[in-house]
Design a protein around this nucleic acid. Structure first.
Length: 257
DNA sequence: ATGGTGGACAATCCA
């Protein structure tokens, strides 16, 4: 079973890229973030002929998540319980015993802002959701998404210069680590412990991708029983070679299931 | 040097 995650930065601008990726890699599940479209305007008809079920949770202009699946999805939920804002950032679905979670974590704008406090709260709400609904040693849960968080110096291109950024600072590191400690394993790091692997390159830095000035902000995280079945996890840099790439790229994982 | 680019959407907000 192959599961992938991709921040598309507008699904309407990335239709061809997403269709090509689905055709080429045939994932069983693709979680996308930042669809930037309300549900009525999601281009569902573009995906009619590629035999994927599509579950969407969007809003106007910002945020928005969706899940593509070759296998029928059950128990779909579109709201993180107790989320005070209810923005389009969360999708949950189930395939057999595997629970799939797709999140677009708030970026936080700047440290000490209201949005930053909401970001920290969002991680705490997720941890509380995990512990109320799942068992880290018994349940097969995969949590995919753009977490807008880097944990280690090797996860960013300039650890000294960037320390203190909303995506790489003490508060975010602490709360994300605390959430992971509930029982999630970072699958990409398990296979690639070396520095220099990123999933995001800021459009505003000239030639950031070419110079590999990136961040690792996207994750596929699995509970122990599911992580045991994982055979590989990789970043697809080729998705960034497209004519009009997103500022993120695709991260994928393979499971012996 | 306090910018840069890209997306939504229609004057700015967000990343």
């Amino acid at each position: 079973m192959k599961i992938a995650t991709y921040n598309v930065n507008s699904i309407r601008s990335r239709i061809e890229l997403v269709k090509d990726w689905l055709r080429k890699h045939k994932p069983d599940v693709l979680c996308i973030q930042e669809t930037k479209v309300q549900d009525e305007e999601f281009p569902l008809e573009e995906f009619k002929d590629c035999r994927y079920e599509v579950v969407i949770r969007g809003q106007k202009k910002y945020n928005g998540v969706a899940v593509f699946s070759r296998i029928p999805l059950e128990d779909i939920e579109t709201e993180l319980p107790k989320d005070p804002l209810g923005e389009a950032r969360f999708l949950k679905a189930r395939i057999g015993k595997i629970v799939i979670l797709n999140t677009y974590i708030p970026q936080g704008q700047e440290v000490d802002s209201e949005k930053f406090r909401y970001k920290l709260k969002y991680f705490r709400l997720l941890k509380s959701y995990f512990s109320s609904y799942f068992h880290p040693k018994k349940d097969f849960v995969v949590w995919c998404g753009d977490m807008n968080a880097a944990l280690e110096p090797i996860d960013v291109y300039d650890p000294k210069g960037l320390w203190g950024h909303v995506c790489y600072c003490r508060e975010v590191k602490e709360v994300f680590e605390e959430t992971l400690k509930w029982g999630f394993i970072d699958l990409f790091r398990r296979y690639h412990p070396e520095p220099g692997h990123y999933t995001f390159w800021d459009y505003r830095i000239p030639n950031a991708f070419k110079r590999n000035l990136g961040w690792r902000l996207d994750y596929i995280l699995a509970t122990e029983p599911l992580a045991k079945t994982c055979t590989d996890c990789w970043i697809d840099l080729e998705a960034r070679q497209a004519e009009k790439p997103s500022d993120h790229t695709v991260l994928a994982a393979e499971f012996a299931l």
